[in-house]
Structures are given as structure tokens and as C-alpha cells.
Amino acid sequence: MIPLEHYLYLSGVVFTLGLCGVMMRRNIIMMLMGIEIMLNAANLALVAFNKYMPPGPDGTVPMDGQVFVFFTIAIAAAEVAVALAIAVALFRRLDTVNVDDVANLRW
């Protein structure tokens, strides 16, 4: 069986990749994809942790880690729906989805 650490390393790598994507990309859609990748890294860690959880007194492993993943998936979908709605409105108004073009609020 693959040890837990391998999952965690993978999850750490994926999380970092997503973070790099958010930091380096200038396209809003790509930044949102980076955020999705980071969320999936967290989901992977949750599922892996749950899989390797020692069984409780009655011999069964609670599934709450796996259930939590469903919550994060649903919430991420809601978040992206709102983000895309704003991105569409932005594109209609300013004809761009590049964050560098959307930087008028300065002092």
C-alpha cells in the first residue's frame, strides 16, 4: 500500500503549483483555475488523511473527511459561478479579463 506521506507530498506539490498559477498568471480565468487546483490539493489531502485514519472503538472509520470534500466541491462550484459572473461582467464593460488592465484603484 502506498504510504500516507506520498499522498501528502503530491498534495503539497499540487497546492504549490496552483499557488504559482495564481501568482504568475494575469488572466482571471487562469487564476481561478489555479485556485481550483489548490482546492483539489486540499481535497486530496483530506481524502488521504481519512483513508489512513485508525479505526474507532467499534472497528469502523468515520467518513467525515470524505464528506467534507463534498462540501468543499459544492462550495468551490458556487465560488467559481460568482467569480465567472463577475469576470463576464468585467469583460462586457472593459473588454478584458487581464488583471493588469483592471488596476485603476490606486492612491
Binding site: 485556485i35 483592471v102 485603476n104 484603484l105
Partner: peptide, 19 residues
Amino acid sequence: PRSLEAGIKFVIIGALAAT
């Protein structure tokens, strides 16, 4: 435009914080 800009910045930073 300034309201949209606020929205998109808030979405990206807020979603990042959530991750």
C-alpha cells in the same frame, strides 16, 4: 468599472484565502 474591479479582486483574494 471600480465596482467590478473591487469584485474581481475580492473574489480572487477571498477564494485564495479559502483554499
